[in-house]
């Protein structure tokens, strides 16, 4: 992309320009070249480490530290190693656990959060800004402060062994719910609510107006919020590392604790393969919905 555009901007200047025009043209062209150099730096910055992970994931373990920048010694062995359970790793199971925990966390946060968001975006009631403040404060709450009290509580409840998914889902709500409400409130506040009134005037019942007019309009915002909540839950590590058991271990914990064939040898290529598997679905989602996600990420934060 960069190369192509640069060549088009470096086309030889046609004769017939005055000297002033020529200077203007050149400074403009330099600014453009600088911009594309900056853009190239930005793209390399974001993608190079990720690219290196993917290249290593497909590289034979004997060539772990090969430095050629393109794929060499391509193999799928690392993915087999990542999924093999022979060395005490349960990556495949962890993927399932993470999906279960992520989906339930997202659904609960959305079900609870959508009501609060509607109220905060649409209604006037006493204590509204206190509620907003509480939700904001919750989002700033340090996760590590949950660990000690919940550790003891969950031990007493007998949730610290077996397949007690709630021991992971409940703490996840603490960050997924504020996140959901903020993003949704910003989305809902931007919706053309006057359409709802028009529909009512045209003879819709309140339920119909909501279902047929507002819900389809709100769908992208709801969907984006759900994606953000799911990603937050999927990426969580601190709480999962403390509260998960063998039956509920999440992918982030599994990857952090990945062990190789020898005790002190880090299985780099297998870990990179596991990292690729964990990341690629997210990246595909992010690429498909990038516009919506960017607006979801920045919603509210900047709307003066």
């Amino acid at each position: 992309m960069t190369a192509a555009t640069t060549t088009s901007t470096t086309a030889p200047p046609t004769s017939g320009r005055t000297e002033a025009q020529e200077i203007h043209f050149k400074s403009n062209r330099n600014a453009k070249i600088r911009m594309y150099i900056g853009l190239a730096a930005l793209v390399i910055w974001g993608l190079a480490p990720f690219y290196w992970m993917v290249v290593t994931a497909f590289r034979d373990v004997g060539y772990t530290f090969d430095t050629s920048p393109w794929p060499t010694h391509v193999t799928l062995d690392n993915f087999r190693t990542a999924f093999s359970t022979g060395r005490g790793n349960h990556f495949g199971a962890a993927l399932v656990h993470s999906v279960i925990i992520g989906v339930v966390t997202t659904v609960v946060a959305m079900l609870v959060g959508v009501f609060a968001s509607y109220a905060l975006a649409r209604l006037n009631f006493p204590g509204k800004y206190v509620v907003l403040g509480v939700i904001l404060g919750s989002s700033m709450f340090p996760g590590v402060a949950l660990v000690t009290p919940l550790f003891q509580l969950f031990t007493n409840l007998g949730w610290r062994d077996g397949a007690n998914y709630q021991a992971l889902i409940i703490p996840n709500i603490s960050f997924a719910l504020p996140l959901t409400i903020y993003t949704l409130t910003a989305f809902l506040a931007e919706m053309p609510w006057e359409l709802e009134e028009s529909a009512r005037i045209d003879g819709c019942t309140p339920g119909q107006a909501f279902r047929k007019i507002m819900l389809p309009l709100a769908a992208p915002g709801l969907f984006t919020t759900a994606i953000l909540a799911f990603i937050a839950s999927w990426n969580e590590f601190l709480l999962a590392s403390q509260f998960s058991t063998a039956q509920t271990q999440t992918v982030t914990v599994a990857i952090a604790q990945f062990t190789g064939s020898q005790p002190h040898q880090e299985p780099y290529t297998a870990v990179m393969a596991a990292g690729t598997i964990v990341t690629v679905p997210l990246i595909i989602m992010v690429l498909i919905f990038q516009r919506a996600i960017v607006s979801g990420l920045t919603a509210g934060g900047v709307k003066g």
Binding site: L120, M140, L179, Y182, A189, L228, T298
Partner: peptide
């Protein structure tokens, strides 16, 4: 409208 605009704690996440 009267909607409150709020900072987005996605930052936190």
């Amino acid at each position: 409208g009267q909607a409150a605009q709020v900072g987005n704690p996605v930052a936190a996440n």
